[in-house]
């Protein structure tokens, strides 16, 4: 979806403070807006998740953290290489869940995702090259 594409909210109405309301929602009723009529924030393409969805993501994050800690205690029982892979996979899943759901990258304009991904990929690439150059993977 391009940055200039119109939002699903259709013809949004601009109210003081920069909020956009879907058609039919009254600015005066901001304190009592039904979930489907929560004002869109600037840069928001689709509505943010509901509080219930936020809680569900929180539960998944807690379960993943518990799994991570459990896997870390398996040192000696399963190969260290497998432990590292499992830990890194769970770390990436947690990272993506927070970025996508809590930081709203899945519902906001793609320009934010592009900047964030650019920084993350650039940093990982740069430091992988640096660490490889310094032979970190072969040990001290």
């Amino acid at each position: 979806m391009s940055e200039t594409e119109t939002t699903p909210a259709g013809e949004a109405e601009v109210v003081p403070g920069g909020l956009e309301l879907r058609s039919g929602a009254e600015p005066a009723a901001l304190s009592d807006v039904p979930p489907e009529q929560v004002p869109l924030l600037p840069g928001e393409v689709r509505p943010h998740p509901t509080p219930f969805q936020y809680v569900m993501i929180g539960v998944v994050l807690v379960v993943l953290t518990a799994l991570e800690v459990t896997v870390s205690y398996l040192e000696g029982d399963i190969p260290n290489g497998l432990i590292i892979v499992l830990l890194l996979v769970m770390m990436v899943v947690k990272f993506v869940l927070v970025a996508a759901w809590y930081m709203h990258l899945r519902t906001d304009r793609p320009i934010f995702r592009r900047f964030f991904t650019l920084g993350a990929v650039a940093a990982v690439t740069l430091f992988m090259v640096v660490l490889t150059t310094l032979h970190i993977w072969t040990g001290p």
């Binding site: 940055e3 200039t4 920069g18 600037p42 840069g43 304009r109 320009i111 934010f112 900047f115 964030f116 650019l118 920084g119 993350a120 650039a122 940093a123 740069l126």
Partner: peptide, 20 residues
């Protein structure tokens, strides 16, 4: 020109640089 507020875009660019 970006269609988003400068404050929010600025925060994302700052966070992107924090990775480094």
């Amino acid at each position: 020109a970006t269609g988003v507020t400068n404050a929010k875009l600025g925060m994302w660019i700052f966070l992107s640089s924090e990775f480094l």
